[in-house]
Design a protein around this nucleic acid. Structure first.
Lengths: 213, 213
DNA sequence: CGTTTTCTTGAGGACGTTCAACCTATGTGG
DNA sequence: CCACATAGGTTGAACGTCCTCAAGAAAACG
């Protein structure tokens, strides 16, 4: 997704306030502290969010109280698409983050950039579905780490993980213990290197993709 | 989803040929034999399908050769939404079926009925994700059976299953043996009754929902 | 009626979960 | 500055669920 670049190239307004993005009026940047709730389950849907900096986690709780983390969103990425009038998911800042919003009207879907965002979102859900439906633990973790590393700009093969093991587990349909073990197994296989708990280096990206693709 | 009723209420053309659906020109009904391929992975995307009768299975194969059945579609339901220009999924008739198509242009998304279809699709994927991400075997099967029964019109609690155990398994991320065992466990629990292998009666819908919701 | 496909059922094993202990990092207050 | 508390992460052992492999039963088909 290349919304990233285009977003940042939007013309600068005074002191970073309401600008336009592809003909859509964006709100001013909202800043969120670590762990701050951005929107809650039950809130009115309709606003779409663009991450300016930081990282956002979007989750959903089932009736049995189990959590599914539907996605993590980094700078330049878009979240907040929901189907009904009420949000089924809730969003939280994983670290100090900035977001901008715009209101999505039905007619806006005719805007090709908006449609592209929606289709990108659809595609990422589909990818997630494929992982949950067909892969085992180590494949899931490999796919996840490659996905994260690919999205963190041009840091090279190094990536910071702003989310906890539990977040990853709830994203991949595993337990946090299994995620921890899988990461250490990937390290033993020399496919990644762990730098503390919250940073990784991809040592053999191709092998990781073979595992997780 | 109520597209069903509206679709059938569209004005009758001569001998059932090109009619309109919410201002969209529909193709004539295409008829597909059992097991017939409707579209293939790699085909050009852009056409959206409406099932007129029968049942369609949409699947996707991973690089490792594993199959995920992304959905089953019955009369009145819509399938064929894809993100890129090339299809990632392929669709097959599970039984003798009829479909109509229309071509989706970007501007059509401004049509609220089209947008509604897309959002319904998004919602069903999300539901699927929730199942694969949080539920165990018996819960998945319970949720699946309720979902099927709810969509098969007003047959009451009885539903025919046009798909095989293997199809169900590949839809739920299980094996066909596990699906078979789960269904017989649900029968032992008196939540369903199996009428042969391809028909079920829901005996305790609420308990099934409790399990699978 | 035999052939083929699909479904069921059993036994054994692998993978992931559960439970528990321990470790590490970070932050707080004395 | 250190003692302690807290949250997150790692590791081990035991268990359970689901998968694999295999055989047999039941439908579907020609």
């Amino acid at each position: 997704m290349f919304i990233h670049r285009e977003f940042h190239s939007s013309q600068a307004g005074a002191a970073g306030h309401p600008r336009f993005f592809e003909g859509i009026r964006l709100s001013a940047t909202a800043r969120h502290r670590e762990k701050e709730l951005i929107y809650a389950q039950g809130d009115e849907a309709g606003d779409i969010y663009i991450v300016e900096f930081g990282c956002v986690r979007v989750s959903r709780i089932t009736l049995e109280g189990r959590r599914l983390v539907t996605g993590f969103y980094f700078a330049g990425e878009v979240f907040g698409f929901e189907t009904g009038t009420e949000r089924q998911c809730y969003a939280e800042a994983l670290e100090y983050s900035g977001t901008r919003t715009f209101h999505l009207e039905g007619r806006d879907l005719a805007n090709p950039r908006i449609a592209e965002m929606l289709f990108d979102h659809l595609e990422s859900i589909h990818q997630h579905l494929l992982i949950l439906g067909t892969q085992n633990a180590i494949e899931r973790v490999a796919a996840f780490l490659v996905g994260i590393a690919d999205r963190r700009g041009v840091d090279g093969p190094r990536a910071r993980l702003p989310m906890s093991r539990c977040d990853i587990a709830d994203h991949l349909g595993l337990t946090l213990e299994t995620v921890s073990r899988a990461m250490h197994r990937l390290q033993a296989l020399k496919l990644i290197r762990l730098v503390g708990a919250r940073e990784i280096v991809l040592l053999d990206r191709d092998a990781l993709i073979d595992l997780g693709a």
